[in-house]
């Protein structure tokens, strides 16, 4: 059950988001690094949690049923994995812009708009990899669950349990895609910090882009290292929870 740890860990990780004023010798304003880590995690974890809620049921539904056009649906999902993030950013920008269909919600340059674009980016890989994992579950497991009197939901849960490693991989792939992309969050988020250096819509990736733009490559590298460490940590946590799920 990989959804649970991801969703519940979000607050815990964010609470520790207060960062040091200096990191490996590079000077940052008080709270700056902590706040961009917090925004990165908040946006990407929320987007991935929402994507997972949509993708895993969709993958199970597609994987456990036979219908005409199934191959076509699969190739659409697979194509979605290759969506360029800037294009997704532009589409979300048109949607949330004042002139767009969602304009009245005033979502432009907010974290919510960033969550929307990362949701669009993360859903195809999570769906596609989950689908592959679900399809790989032995038919015998499904049949056994059904013979034992399980409802359709019971069968689905058994299949999810069997495919949990694959699904965990899917969620991690989605998270990796979301947290590392820069194109769409820059367009819809605007890379905003407040005047005192606390991030509003600046993520690690857009902060790296900003530092590189100003020729501060060392600072950009340090933030890059923070991003890699963050992804490693999230991976380690998810894997650990996955193992504990087996032991329990």
């Amino acid at each position: 059950m990989p959804i649970e740890p991801v969703a519940q860990l979000a607050p815990a990780l964010l609470d520790s988001g207060a960062g040091p004023a200096s990191l490996f010798g590079a000077s940052f304003r008080e709270g700056y690094v902590g706040s961009i880590i917090a925004v990165s995690l908040y946006v990407s974890l929320t987007a991935v949690a929402l994507s997972t809620l949509v993708s895993v049921p969709a993958a199970v539904a597609i994987g456990l049923t036979e219908f005409p056009g199934k191959g076509f649906v699969k190739s659409v999902v697979n194509t979605g994995m290759g969506f360029p993030s800037v294009v997704v950013g532009l589409v979300v920008l048109f949607a949330v812009s004042n002139q767009g269909p969602l304009g009245s919600l005033e979502l432009i340059f907010t974290r919510e708009a960033m969550i929307m674009s990362q949701f669009v980016l993360a859903t195809p890989p999570i769906t596609a990899i989950s689908l592959a994992a679900v399809s790989g579950v032995d038919d015998g497991v499904r049949d056994a669950a059904r013979v034992l009197g399980g409802t359709r939901i019971d069968v689905a849960l058994v299949v999810i349990k069997e495919a949990r490693y694959g699904i965990a991989t899917a969620v991690l792939a989605g998270f990796g895609r979301a947290v590392s992309e820069v194109g769409s969050v820059l367009i819809v988020g605007g890379n905003i910090t407040s005047a005192d250096g606390i991030s509003k819509t600046r993520t690690l990736t857009t902060a790296i882009q900003l530092e590189a733009r100003q020729g501060r490559y060392e600072t950009a590298m340090i933030l890059g290292a923070v991003l890699v460490a963050l992804v490693l940590t999230v991976n380690a946590v998810v894997v650990r929870f996955g193992d504990r799920g087996v032991a329990g």
């Binding site: 979000a10 607050p11 964010l14 609470d15 988001g17 709270g31 902590g34 706040s35 917090a38 925004v39 908040y42 946006v43 974890l45 929320t46 005033e106 979502l107 907010t110 974290r111 919510e112 905003i192 910090t193 407040s194 606390i198 991030s199 509003k200 819509t201």
Partner: peptide
């Protein structure tokens, strides 16, 4: 959405 002032604790999750 409207908490422009406290962008720092972006942890809406808590």
């Amino acid at each position: 959405t409207n908490d422009g002032g406290d962008g720092g604790d972006g942890g809406g999750g808590d």
